[in-house]
Every structure is written in structure tokens, then in C-alpha cells.
């Protein structure tokens, strides 16, 4: 539908294939130094130093987990306080209603529960998952990104992107192959 309106085939970007993770880190550095910003790398396992090389500095996950832990802990305690002091006070030989030491176990459990579950949801949302379709899957070689190949992709949305120059640049990195990444619709992906 909307794809028909635009002219020519839609391109997501250009992708280069490498065989060695450490080589990929070094090449990602070079691309960053050449001025490319809108790019991503795809690897079968986490490669140390790659996010830094691509210029990812900020990580929200620890903040989400921390905030969720604090919220869960406070919420867990308030729940018990409200139940035991306000909603359903039980007078046991005149003992205090706010028996906070006895509330610590559930407070602790709620802290952990909230941190884990919200942290997981945060990770999923920050990664924009679930996302069954993504243009990179159009590259046939991309299947190897979960096996033993390492890919660097410069996106068309990068201001410096140019079909010819960027291809030349990627070829200059001595990859095992450079592929055009087709896109089937005109949505914006990153």
C-alpha cells in the first residue's frame, strides 16, 4: 500500500559480515570515527566493548530495576501496614498493630518480585520487543547472526548515509560480504 507510493525499492541500510567478534569491535570503532551514528551490530553472543564502540552510553535497565525495587519494597510494606493497622486490625493482648519486624519478609519478597518482573518488562520494551518483523531478517545470510557470523549495519536514516559512499566505506573494512538490506514497508526501524 504505502510502499507503492514511494519510488524505487525501499532500503533499510547496508550490512557487512565479519567472522571475528574482536574484528567487528574494531570495525565498528572505525565506522563511528568515520562519522556514522545510526548503526547497529548483530552478534550471536554479547561482545564486550561493542556497545561502547557503537556509541551506546546510557543504560536504563539498572534504573528501572532500582526504581522497581524501591517501589516494590515500599508498596509491599504499605500493603501489610494498611491490612494490619487500618483494614483488619486484630488486637492480640494489646500488642502494637504495626509489627514492622514481622512485615520484613513480605517486604523483601515484594522488592525482589517487583525488581525482577518490571526489570524484565523494561528490558523487553527498551529493545522494542516483541517485534516479529525487522528488515534485517530480509538478508539471507542474517541467519548466521545467531551462529558464528558478526554483522555491522549502517542505516539509511544516518545523515551521512550514501548508497555508493557507504558501500565503498564498508568494502574498505574488508568484510566477508556487503549486503543491501531491503525493507518491505516504509515504517521507521532502528
Amino acid at each position: 500500500m504505502s510502499a507503492a507510493k514511494s519510488e524505487g525499492p525501499l532500503i533499510f541500510g547496508l550490512m557487512a559480515e565479519f567472522s571475528d567478534p574482536d574484528e567487528l569491535v574494531q570495525k565498528a570503532h572505525q565506522a563511528y570515527e568515520a562519522g556514522y551514528r545510526k548503526m547497529d551490530a548483530y552478534t550471536p553472543f554479547p561482545v564486550h566493548g561493542l556497545p561502547t564502540a557503537l556509541g551506546f552510553k546510557w543504560n536504563w535497565v539498572p534504573f528501572i530495576v532500582g526504581a522497581a525495587a524501591i517501589m516494590g519494597g515500599i508498596g509491599g510494606f504499605l500493603l501489610q501496614y494498611w491490612v494490619s493497622v487500618i483494614a483488619y486490625p486484630v488486637n492480640i493482648a494489646g500488642r502494637p498493630l504495626n509489627t514492622w519486624p514481622a512485615f520484613m519478609v513480605v517486604t523483601f519478597e515484594m522488592t525482589i518480585l517487583s525488581a525482577g518482573v518490571l526489570g524484565f518488562l523494561g528490558m523487553i520494551l527498551l529493545n522494542k520487543l516483541p517485534q516479529p518483523y525487522h528488515p534485517v531478517f530480509n538478508v539471507p545470510r542474517f541467519e548466521m547472526a545467531s551462529s558464528d557470523k558478526f554483522f555491522l549495519c549502517i542505516m539509511k536514516s544516518d545523515p551521512k548515509f550514501d548508497m555508493v559512499k557507504t558501500r565503498d566505506f564498508l568494502e574498505g573494512l574488508e568484510p566477508e560480504g556487503v549486503y543491501e538490506v531491503d525493507q518491505d514497508d516504509d515504517n521507521v526501524y532502528d
Binding site: 547497529d40 551490530a41 548483530y42 552478534t43 550471536p44 553472543f45 554479547p46 561482545v47 561493542l50 556497545p51 557503537l54 551506546f56 543504560n59 536504563w60 535497565v61 539498572p62 530495576v65 525495587a69 523483601f108 525482589i112 525488581a115 525482577g116 526489570g119 524484565f120 523494561g122 528490558m123 523487553i124 527498551l126 529493545n127 520487543l129 516483541p130 517485534q131 516479529p132 518483523y133 525487522h134 534485517v136 531478517f137 547472526a145 545467531s146
Partner: peptide
């Protein structure tokens, strides 16, 4: 869920994995 092994994915994934390990330890 559409995981592509992108470094952005790993960046968040690894941070969460470490934190989950840290909170599962007292648990």
C-alpha cells in the same frame, strides 16, 4: 519475540541478566 542479537539488545539484556543474578542471590 523477534530477537536479532543487536548490540542494543545485548546491551540491555546483559545488564538485566547481571541484575537478576544479583537479586536472585539473596532470594
Amino acid at each position: 519475540l523477534g530477537w536479532r542479537g543487536s548490540s542494543r539488545h545485548w546491551h540491555h539484556h546483559q545488564a538485566l541478566y547481571l541484575l537478576l543474578a544479583a537479586i536472585a542471590t539473596p532470594l
